[in-house]
Simulated scan of single mutants.
Amino acid sequence: MQSAKILNKLLKEAPKNTKGSKEIAELQNLIVEVMKPRLDKLEEILSFRIVPAIRDDFQDEEEDWWPDYELYSDSHAITDMNGLLVCIQVALKGMPDDLKAIGEKFDFAYLAAKPTTIQNKTKKYLLVDELIEDMEDFVTHFSRLCTKILDDRRNLHDLASITMDTGDRIKLKIFDEQTFVQLQSRIASLENYIRDFCALFEAHVECKEEDRAGTLSKFAKPQGPLSAGAVKEART
């Protein structure tokens, strides 16, 4: 997806009562209205970490203790990958429709603000229009990916639950770790694209950045990587 950073600002904030000023202000307000809540949700998702699960003090030492890892975030009670995937789907839900609405409002504002001497839509306009379509496609495919991952994970989890085999459990753990990295990378990319997109229209959506590195409590230490032996065992 093309970054909005390569584009100059197409519609700058216009003084009141000038040509297109009302339409530009409405476009900016719409962008802030629909994008700021989504950015807040993406920030929350990026705060998740994989951490070792904490054994209950009253739990029998010989009792089967699995999984030995979980998700942690100060802002959510979600502790497993399924919950994170559903949380992402909720954050993405309706976003393609929001982008379509922004595209329509952008078209209206552009026509209202452009000089009468310009007859055809400019190259910059076409680039922004393409950017909106690219963002729609990105979000749609991302949501479908989450659905596929949920299905794949359900199969792995069910198998590991039935067999209680160490190898099957390690396969699920590897799947979760790889999935987590993939999801966080896509969420970070989407967040950056949204911020760049909003900056393109001078729509101010900045919120107070939280120190993601400081969101973990003293009990939430990052999960260490799997040993080479464990990976080998899972693949055999």
Score class of each variant (00 low, 15 high):
D168F: 15
C87F: 14
C146E: 07
H141C: 07
T163E: 05
E206G: 11
K171V: 06
I6V: 10
K93C: 06
S161A: 14
K41W: 06
D97N: 10
A234F: 04
M1K: 04
K22C: 01
L156S: 07
I174P: 11
F58Y: 12
E210A: 15
A160W: 03
V139W: 09
I50D: 02
V34Y: 04
A188L: 02
T79S: 15
K124T: 12
K93E: 09
L42M: 13
A112R: 10
Y72R: 12
F106L: 15
E130C: 09
V231E: 05
R55M: 06
F106I: 05
V51Y: 12
V181S: 04
K114I: 05
D134K: 15
S73T: 03
V34P: 06
L172W: 00
R235A: 07
K100W: 03
E44H: 13
L7W: 07
M1A: 08
S47L: 08
A188R: 02
I149C: 08
A113Q: 14
D152R: 10
D165S: 04
R38G: 03
E43Y: 09
D134W: 03
T18N: 08
I102T: 01
L39P: 04
P115Y: 06
K221F: 03
I187S: 00
D60L: 11
A188C: 00
P115T: 02
T166Y: 05
C198M: 01
G94C: 14
K173W: 03
K105W: 08
D60Y: 08
R169Y: 06
L111M: 11
Y69G: 01
I88Y: 08
D64L: 10
M164P: 04
L131G: 15
K232I: 01
D107H: 14
Y69A: 01
I50V: 09
T166S: 07
S185Q: 06
P52T: 00
F138T: 09
N82I: 12
D134L: 09
M164L: 13
F201C: 00
M1E: 02
N29D: 11
F180E: 08
C198K: 02
F48E: 01
T236L: 11
D134A: 14
D158I: 03
L131H: 12
